[in-house]
Simulated scan of single mutants.
Amino acid sequence: MTQSQPTALTIGNFDGVHAGHAALFREVVSAADRMGLVPTVVTLNPHPKEFFDPTYRLQRITTFRDRVVAMKNCGIRQVVVLPFDKAMASLPPESFVKDVLCRQLNARQIWVGDDFRFGARRAGDYHLLKSLSPAMGFQVNDLPEVQINHQRVSSSQIREALNKGDVSTAQAMLGHPLCYSGHIIHGKKLGRKLGFPTMNLRIQGRASALSGILAVWVHGLDANPLPAVASLGLRPTVEDSNQILLETFIPGWTGNAYGKRVTIEVAQHLRPELKFDSLDAMVNRMHQDTATALNILKTAPSHL
């Protein structure tokens, strides 16, 4: 791939696209507009940690689709996904700058953090980029730091909050509602037999930062968001798999959602995912969870 039009770019995972990422993207877009460049985000797939350690499970905040949408909403016009494979992992940092950033992406403005590392053995850093920039015709910029309540906003902090079920803290750092979107797929239809017909969204990745039972709003099926209860996780009571699903039950709704694209907006975490001794015990708890979720949503309006 060769990028003919010059770019202003930043490189990273950008999971969740939080308030700090949004501030960075605004700087990239502003510079690109002033200089006639294409505002670009460069990211890697899979995550380097997952490539080097097949047992590593990155707890993702949002899906890749939702990350790209959030980037585009910030004004980013181009998202480049670099395959992280053996060749990329062994690429010397100078070659990465010359062949990827300059030749392929025609970078003129680059934003990275002081702790950014790249190239074989993570030998490349901000200072190397700075030293190479005059000869290769690009400028290197520092990433801005964003704080909320005197705390640096970071994906790690958001994951920690979501691990605890603290959706409100996570959303404050994200700067937007926590959402999962995608097309509804067919499931095993067990919920229908139990009196809780659910819509299923497959969540990509090996692990999710948030899991458990959630009070949610469903967008895309009606003119107004629909109050619902959802389960995000591995369904330990009824299945033994590593597939993460978001199953959503909308009380009183009888439409056909298969194949439709919906957005599930998380309002509150109710409880962790549990493994029940019987289906009857699970159904009894589902009735309780549904009532709790609907009661919460009476005073927790949608923010989309």
Rank of each mutant, 00 (worst) to 15 (best):
S168M: 11
Q157M: 12
H176L: 07
E160A: 15
M173V: 05
Q157L: 15
H150Q: 15
V153Y: 03
M173F: 06
R159F: 05
T169P: 08
A170Y: 00
N163P: 02
E160D: 15
S155G: 11
S168H: 13
S168P: 00
N149W: 03
D166K: 09
N149I: 03
A172Y: 02
R159V: 07
D166Y: 06
L178P: 01
I158G: 05
K164N: 14
Q157A: 15
V167K: 00
K164E: 12
L162T: 05
Q171Y: 10
Q157I: 10
V153K: 05
R159N: 09
A172D: 10
N149P: 03
A170M: 04
Q171E: 14
H150G: 13
S155W: 02
R152V: 08
Q171L: 07
S154Q: 02
S154R: 10
S155K: 00
V167A: 07
K164W: 01
A161V: 04
V153Q: 02
V153A: 08
E160P: 01
A161F: 05
G175S: 11
D166P: 05
D166G: 11
R152W: 03
N163L: 13
T169M: 09
N149C: 12
S156V: 01
S156W: 04
A170D: 02
L174P: 01
Q171H: 12
M173R: 06
V167E: 06
G175M: 01
I158F: 08
E160T: 12
Q157C: 14
E160I: 09
L174I: 00
S168G: 07
K164G: 07
P177I: 06
M173H: 04
H176W: 07
C179P: 03
G165W: 00
V153I: 04
H150K: 15
S168V: 13
K164Y: 10
I158L: 09
N163T: 12
H150M: 13
I158Y: 02
Q151C: 15
G175R: 02
R152D: 02
